[in-house]
Amino acid sequence: MALNNYLTYEVKSRKIFGRDRWIATLRLANRCSFDEIAKEVEARTSCQSSEVEGFITALAHEIEKYLHMGENVEIEGLGTFYPKMTTKVVDNVEEATIKNCISSITVGFRPHTKLKNAIKNAGLKEYTKAKLKSNDKEE
């Protein structure tokens, strides 16, 4: 793993079960846009970024197609996408209908071990606000 792979956490004060506590929260780095990802992939392959964008769009359509069929879609190294159903239970079989039992269907995701390990092996750094030097202070 590269040395610059680290997660930054920030210590914040929160109320947990009515008590004041200090807790470490993740401070996300800049959001990587779709274009940035396409350009990054372009730099590593012989394909144009427009082709990469087309590829990701086609990939999303393919994943969606299989999710509609009720299948799990496994992407090696990234994870598994699946249709996640939230259901309710009923006492009688007659009541077990789609309307009564299914409360939501969303896209579920189980990260691949490689991705989980990459995050677990990344370093941790505490975020500290940059302090003003005494010379920089306004008089």
């Binding site: 959001r31 990587c32 779709f34 990802i37 990469v52 964008e53 590829f55 999303a60 990459a118």
Partner: peptide, 22 residues
Amino acid sequence: IFRSLVEVVTEKVSQGHSVDLG
């Protein structure tokens, strides 16, 4: 592209970025 995409996403996520997959 597939292999590079997985590589880039893994790298960015482990650097603390949120990654937009369109």
